[in-house]
Design a protein around this nucleic acid. Structure first.
Lengths: 199, 199
DNA sequence: ATTAAAACTTACCAAGTGGTAAGTTGTCAA
DNA sequence: TTGACAACTTACCACTTGGTAAGTTTTAAT
């Protein structure tokens, strides 16, 4: 991708993430870029297409970041590792996470078929990580899915809570929780998986 | 509250939850009600005020629903029970949940101070539920907060995922997971709390 | 029957929305 | 130097936005 185009997408991403699709106007985004509204439209054709490109870009980034092994595991990916890595990624790219959660909420309307099967693939691979684990031998696919969703939720919800959380308490408190959050996600899923064999 | 006014708020709630504050216009809401735009504005003064009333109403409902004891526990509220109940509530009132997650995302802009201390109180009480539990004797407040957030996330994320989830797989699959989700939340938090004393 | 307030409508408005059309400027290879 | 194309601007457009003003209908208490 072009470098200036990447800049446009980056700024648009920020704006869409912060205010939502309907919350930002093309003019606002172009203002922030020091361009006229029409210049921006010239590049992408329409607001929808700009948004689509934003969505595709962060989907790719996220997918890429997930497929990278965390700290050199061999064949089998450990759930603890996988989800801790994912958590790290979501907390680092909190803007992208925000946008994806927004998309989850708006998805009923703006049917983004491209992103949907990326998501399906993504969920399927997380599901496999659970099912492949030694502790989950007797588990059903529904149960695996449940655990995936719970963990995904634990990660995403916290990632988008920063502004509110920071206002209710303060930034320091948030960062204290944030610091260990990925590790705590690992603890959570470990506890849950261990409890299967134990109980 | 007035009965017709309640109806107005109910419809507005649905619309705001589905499309977000900027995604709906006053005209759209009033159309759905069979009213003119100006009739609706007459009742609430402005779009912002209508939204504020929507928010306050669902906050009250949720708070009320949470304070009701689930199935007659005596003095000490068990974390498993509390969060399972909360989960049930969120899944039942998924519209309200959607809206509150939206609010979480938009909160940076539309500073809703009233809702904020309700939320603070709410989080504090959940925190206490964890800290009061026998298994959490040596735990720090930060760790308790982490567990609260993880569980809250596991609940809310799933509650808002219904449309996307249902489209990726199908409605039947979703309902299969949904059916046991509250119980699974209980299992999750049980596993996590048990793991503290265990190891 | 009178009155007053609540519920609602018609008629506007300024500002903003996404988008089109046509032209201008800048860049750079042939 | 010329030609071509991308980057960008100016000038619009039809439409929607939230909101105001002023009037009409409905409801209900006196």
């Amino acid at each position: 991708m072009n470098k200036t185009r990447a800049k446009l997408v980056a700024v648009a991403t920020e704006q869409f993430a912060e205010r939502g699709f309907y919350g930002v106007s093309v003019a606002q985004i172009s203002d922030q870029l020091g361009l006229t509204k029409q210049a921006l439209l010239h590049h992408f054709g329409s607001k929808e297409k700009l948004y689509a490109e934003v969505l595709q870009t962060i989907s790719e980034e996220l997918m890429q970041s997930i497929n990278q092994p965390g700290t050199g595991e061999s064949m089998q990916a450990q759930p603890e590792q996988v989800f801790a890595n994912l958590c790290e990624t979501c907390l680092t790219n909190s803007t992208a996470t925000q946008l994806l959660v927004r998309e989850l909420l708006d998805n009923k309307r703006r049917a983004e078929s491209a992103r949907q099967w990326y998501l399906k693939e993504f969920l399927a691979s997380l599901n496999q990580v659970i099912l492949n684990d030694a502790r989950c031998s007797g588990i059903s696919e529904t149960e695996a899915m449940t655990i995936v969703y719970q963990t995904l939720g634990a990660i995403n919800y916290f990632a988008i809570s920063k502004p509110t959380f920071s206002r209710i308490y303060d930034g320091k408190t948030y960062r204290a929780v944030e610091k260990d959050y990925a590790r705590e996600i690992a603890s959570l899923i470990k506890a849950r998986l261990d409890s299967i064999t134990a109980g």
